[in-house]
Amino acid sequence: MTMTATVGHARADPHHIGVVIEHPGPAPKRIVTAYGFWIFLLSDIVMFSCFFAAYAVLVGQTAGGPKGAEIFEQRNVAIETVCLLLSSFTCGMASIAADVRSRFWFYLGMSVTCVLGLIFLAIEFREFADLVARGYGPSRSAFLTAFFSLVGCHGLHVSAGVLWLLTMMAQVFAKGFRADVLRRMMCFALFWHALDIIWVGVFSVVYLLGGAP
């Protein structure tokens, strides 16, 4: 039906004072997708904040087990941090490459991101395996429980990110830079950067604050 035509000027909104800027209508798909994904990321950050809170509550509960300062290795963590920060840069390069439709630079950027992510995961896995081998697994104390879950939750996100990254590369290979592929790429980039931000939190709260003897 012809609603655009039916209304001349409707009853003036009784509360309005002055000029009202009319809402222009539904936003384009690109905006909607990114916006929705942003909201998802916010909710993900809420979830992380629970694990941060749990860590803050339980950090002193070592139950006779080791304290943070006794088990953290700053050198490894520094390498991890550098890897992740660099990967954010390369991920950004891949996004730009996707925007200018350059397959070569896209694949290169994504591959480097992937390798850096895998190095990060490998170091983290080794750290975990080493701790468990020394008898400092997550069931040793509430502190270790909180530590393993917070860091592990981030690690799981990075793993999921790597899986997504590979899927993304396969999709560009198979489908090219289609509009929906580009939207997904944008979401992936947001996700990867958000993981970086969370890592900065993990790094500061867990390793920097906890590393002090």
Binding site: Q61, S139, T145
Partner: peptide
């Protein structure tokens, strides 16, 4: 719920009486 499940499945100590759970 993830914390509760970790306690139940993997022996974590988020909410247990033992090992400093809260």
């Amino acid at each position: 719920l993830a914390m509760l499940l970790l306690d139940r499945y993997l022996g974590f100590h988020f909410f247990t009486n033992e090992a400093g759970g809260n």
